[in-house]
Computed example of a mutant assay.
Amino acid sequence: MDYILRSIYQERASQPETLGVILVNKREDQINLTDTFDTILLIIVKEAELPIFTKHYCYEDQKVAMHIITEQLLNKWIYIGKNRRIVDWVFHGKVLFERNEYLTNLKKTLEDFSFYGRKIKAGVQFAKLLRSYTEGKEFFQRGDHLDAYLHVVKSLQYLARLSIIESGLYPEVTVWSQVKKIEPSIYKLYEELVTSRETLEKRLELLFLAIEFSMNSKIQSCSQHIMEVLQSKELWTIQDLHNHHELKYYSVELELFIEFLIEKGYIIIERMKSKNESIDHRLYRANVNVHNHDLIK
């Protein structure tokens, strides 16, 4: 099997844009980690026409998946937490090839989880939490309790990941086993949602209050990254913010996060005359006088 796999990845490894090759074997206790494939070959490249390219192979009774991904896509997944299996593959996979210690340094970065990386990831996770919470609250107020329940579960997952990030660790696939040790209070909220004998409506009402309280306690730390970006120049259009290379990680949650920070007083709206005298441009600037306690409502 090793010989067969070597013939697949060696050609890729010889190409100058290839940064690293990782081998991941299926683990019987976590077969979904490899999408039930026996083996995963993860090849990271500097650039490519497609951000991800996949091929499937079979050898005797074994099935193999090869994923070629760009460094940019890998970084995006790491920061936004969209594909947490990738982190597990990088941490626990076998390094078959690396250029200039690329994978060694990547693992060290993930293990250290630098303060800068934490700021970005915390901001992105908070924006996702905000989306899930606001949409869930709307369902709840309309009486759609089952839809609200699903959003509360998602919100608790984002809260759990935030607590792990703030502790200086990287959220793994088994996030609840991590958070049970790190912040039992959030794990307790999840237990209350699932096991409480209260009516579903009452459980949801209490959980929304608890989530809102947790969100308010985290605004200052979780908005640090986006506020630092805003402070890098005086005024921003919304398109300027969308175009910023780091704020792209916030994706569709960016505008919701901006409006939330306006509501909390962290961002100030500036009006600028447009060609049409009856309407103004809406611009944004950081409120440099923001205080930790005065503006958290």
Score class of each variant (00 low, 15 high):
Arg99Lys: 15
Ala148Lys: 02
Gly117Tyr: 13
Asp35Gly: 00
Asn243Met: 11
Glu259Thr: 05
Asn75Gly: 05
Thr109Leu: 06
Phe139Gln: 04
Asp29Cys: 05
Leu261Arg: 02
Ser177Gln: 11
Val288Glu: 07
Lys63Thr: 14
Lys119Gly: 07
Arg12Val: 12
Val152Arg: 02
Ile279Pro: 07
Leu200Arg: 03
Lys55Asp: 09
Leu50Cys: 00
Glu47Val: 13
Tyr266Glu: 06
Glu259Phe: 14
Glu71Cys: 04
Ile226Glu: 13
Leu41Cys: 13
Leu50Gly: 00
Leu206Ile: 11
Glu166His: 10
Ile164Pro: 02
Val64Asp: 06
Arg131Cys: 06
Lys137Trp: 09
Leu159Glu: 07
Glu270Met: 05
Val124Gln: 02
Glu49Leu: 06
Ile226Leu: 13
Glu255Val: 12
Val175Asn: 03
Lys55Glu: 11
Leu156Cys: 03
Asn83Gly: 01
Arg12Gln: 13
Met1Tyr: 08
Phe91Asp: 02
Glu263Pro: 14
Asp2Met: 13
Ile22Arg: 01
His145Ala: 00
His67Thr: 07
Glu191Leu: 13
Gln141Phe: 07
Asp2Cys: 03
Glu172Lys: 15
His244Phe: 06
Leu23Phe: 13
Phe139Gly: 03
Thr134Tyr: 10
Ile186Thr: 03
Asp2Tyr: 15
Ser278Ile: 08
Lys108Ala: 04
Arg142Thr: 12
Tyr57Ser: 00
Phe257Ala: 02
Ser132Phe: 11
Ala13Met: 09
Met215Leu: 00
Asn25Gly: 13
Lys128Glu: 11
Asp280Ile: 01
Arg131Glu: 13
Phe257Thr: 02
Ile44Leu: 12
Ile78Ser: 10
Val229Thr: 11
Asp29Ile: 12
Met272Gln: 15
Phe213Trp: 08
Glu17Arg: 10
Leu200Val: 03
Gly143Arg: 04
Asn216Ile: 09
Asn276Gly: 05
Glu47Arg: 06
Tyr187His: 09
Leu5Lys: 02
Ile8Gly: 02
Asp112Lys: 11
Val179Ser: 01
Thr237Cys: 02
Ile31Cys: 04
Thr199Ile: 05
Thr36His: 12
Met66Glu: 15
Phe97Thr: 01
Ala122Asn: 08
Val288Phe: 04
Glu183His: 11
Gly20Lys: 02
Phe115Asn: 08
Lys154Pro: 00
Ile31His: 05
Glu198Ser: 13
Glu138Phe: 08
Ser177Asn: 09
Leu110Ile: 10
His56Gln: 12
Lys63Ile: 15
Glu101Val: 06
Phe91Lys: 13
Lys297Ile: 06
Met227Val: 08
